[in-house]
């Protein structure tokens, strides 16, 4: 007689169907891929924004054309002199009248100059010092009392806090998705156990170890979860590529477009999702079956 395959001893192909479980795990993987993409996008955007924001320096000089404290020129010129000799300040530039008008237009209308308000001069610059700009603020106060120095540090902290909370949300989504996937596998496995109760009773009576029976369920769960998850992840890739394309202007110049815009970390993490789904399927099926088998003598 020809050699025969061991095949599906328990009848799991019918009891653990290849329809509902893979579809649900695929949906979970789709969500997980988006969550991973979201978390990484947050990190990338935050890194980009934090770098720009943290270094930004804004200096407001009230009554810029009044004489300075030493009566050695205008208050604005005194501040400019102080900035020019400070090696930690680079790229200082006085904001133009047009730019000022654009900034205050939402509050004072498009022609603020006609109101006769005494507006401060605003100097923008890059702070390249190691520590805070407090010492610079003191120097400018002495040169021109009332001068305000603002750095982007506070905004950088807020961006960091926002990023952390968004990443925590993404992790929570991943956790929920993993738990739902595990629940789906557990329910499918219990349903399979109920359908195969007599078969399992018989196989158990013939001397099958708990690990034999659980292993067969777990192997089936692995393939179903792997297949479903691979499908869900593949479906998520175009969506991720589209989101990456949308985010490209904020993260830097777009390169080749499409999948090539995806962060390298995402290209590494997303293919791991089917493996994670398979692991969840294996562990859940093992635990569910072994727990159920405890009812047998």
């Amino acid at each position: 007689m020809m050699a025969r395959r061991r095949g599906d001893l328990l009848g799991l192909r019918a009891a653990l169907s290849d329809r509902l479980l893979p579809v649900l795990v695929g949906a979970m993987s789709f969500l997980a891929a988006l969550a991973v993409g979201g978390a990484l996008a947050c990190a990338t955007l935050a890194a980009s924004w934090q770098g720009d924001t943290e270094a930004a320096l804004t200096i407001q000089v009230p009554q810029p054309n009044d004489p300075d404290a030493a009566n050695d020129g205008t208050r604005l010129a005194a501040v400019q002199r102080a900035l020019a000799v400070n090696p930690d300040v680079q790229g200082e530039a006085i904001m133009s009248e047009a730019e000022m008008n654009r900034l205050i237009a939402p509050w004072l209308g498009s022609d603020a100059a006609s109101l006769g308000l005494s507006l401060p001069a605003v100097i923008t610059a890059q702070w390249e010092g190691e520590g805070s700009a407090d010492e610079l603020a003191t120097q400018l106060q002495q040169a021109s009392p009332g001068t305000l120095v603002k750095t982007g540090a506070i905004w950088a902290q807020r961006v960091a806090a926002l990023t952390t909370s968004l990443q925590a949300c993404a992790l929570a989504v991943l956790l929920v998705v993993a738990l739902v996937a595990a629940a789906v596998v557990a329910v499918a496995t219990r349903s399979g156990l109920a359908q195969l109760r007599e078969t399992i009773d018989t196989v158990h009576g013939l001397g099958a170890l708990d690990s034999d029976i659980a292993g067969r369920f777990a192997t089936r769960a692995i393939w179903l979860a792997l297949g479903g998850s691979a499908g869900g992840t593949l479906l998520a890739l175009p969506m991720l590529a589209w989101l990456a394309w949308l985010a490209a202007p904020f993260t830097g110049p777009a390169r080749l477009g499409g999948f090539f815009n995806l962060p390298p970390a995402l290209l590494v993490l997303v293919p791991l999702l089917p493996g994670m789904a398979a692991l969840i399927g294996w562990v859940t099926a093992q635990l569910t079956v072994r727990g159920w088998l405890r009812h047998l003598p």
Partner: peptide, 15 residues
Amino acid sequence: RLLPQLDAYDNVALP
């Protein structure tokens, strides 16, 4: 208590 999804050969081979 024969397993319905297996043929006679595989049922006997099971143990």
